[in-house]
């Protein structure tokens, strides 16, 4: 790892200011992606700004018909939260299946979605639930947030402060984990909400995406049988040593049926 200045602000404003002062600096959330990246010398920031001691980025609370989770909340804490388990159990279950125990004890919600790894789990829940990403300067709808592989709508120096998840009527997430990394070979998040059905797919494409054909079918008939005959075009899906695009397209429908079966 190349050396860098380690900085540890205690307020969001200080973190933003520190980043602006440096020509090349990185925010450090849980570090479960950034630190391996630095160890491989794939990045050489002049400064690393640790967000872990900023109290305003912590915590889980209920706010009206939404669950608000601070950006630096650990996966393990979301998975074990009595509040999340009661209000959006599918979200707790998803967090409990990310990586392994040690990754869940360090990795954070804000870090995961800001990194937007195409195989990460959290983008599935954020898009599937139609969440709103709160940053230090604005609110961004999930539908506008995930813009491409490892790309988001965040501006340089913008910090995710929390994510506001509207509480669905029912929701479920099913994934086919890579047996070594636990990343999603494909993962499908299905949510029934007062505004309709939302279906988000992670792991299969360049970034998380919705599948209108599945949403429409489930809006008409919320049952696994309603998905019979629906296929996902494999054009543009990921193809690698773990799974071909055609296999991922197949997995999406299998996982969608499993998720629907879990909540119907």
């Amino acid at each position: 790892m190349y050396d860098f200045d380690y900085l540890r602000p205690t307020t969001v404003a200080d973190a933003v200011a520190l980043l602006a002062q440096r020509s090349e600096a990185k925010f450090l959330a849980g570090g479960q992606t950034l630190l391996p990246t630095l160890k491989q010398r794939l990045a050489q920031p002049e400064a690393v700004i640790d967000l872990s001691r900023i109290a305003a980025l912590q915590g889980i609370r209920e706010d009206g018909d939404a669950l608000v989770i601070g950006a630096m909340t650990l996966h393990a804490d979301v998975a074990a939260s009595a509040l999340v388990l009661r209000v959006i159990p599918a979200l707790a279950a998803l967090a409990g299946e990310i990586g392994d125990r040690q990754v869940r004890n360090r990795g954070t919600l804000g870090g995961s979605i800001s990194n937007n790894d195409p195989a990460a789990d959290y983008p599935g829940a954020v898009l599937g639930l139609g969440a709103t990403i709160e940053t230090d300067r604005r609110s961004i709808a999930a539908d506008d947030f995930f813009t491409g592989m490892f790309e988001t709508a965040l501006d340089p120096g913008e910090i995710v402060t929390s994510v506001r998840f509207p509480v669905p009527q029912r929701a479920a997430y099913r994934k086919f984990p890579n047996p070594a990394s636990r990343y999603a070979t494909a993962g499908v998040f299905v949510a029934r909400t007062v505004d309709g059905v939302r279906v988000a797919v992670t792991g299969a494409g360049a970034t998380v995406f919705r599948v209108p054909a599945i949403e429409d079918a489930l809006a008409a008939d919320f049952s696994p049988a309603a998905l019979t005959g629906i296929t996902v075009d494999d054009d543009g899906l990921n193809s690698d040593i773990h799974a071909s695009a055609a296999y991922r397209a197949h997995l999406i429908m299998v996982l969608a049926r499993r998720a629907v079966a879990a909540i119907s």
């Binding site: 570090g31 630190l35 391996p36 160890k39 040690q102 360090r106």
Partner: peptide, 29 residues
């Protein structure tokens, strides 16, 4: 492995198991 996969480096930080190859010493301050 030094790639945060194998777990030979697991220690407890404030009682939680973590991979010490994927945490800075400064983060444990």
């Amino acid at each position: 492995c030094d790639t945060s996969q194998c777990g030979a480096c697991v220690v407890l930080v404030d009682g939680r198991s973590i991979k010490s190859c994927t945490m800075l010493a400064a983060q444990a301050d």
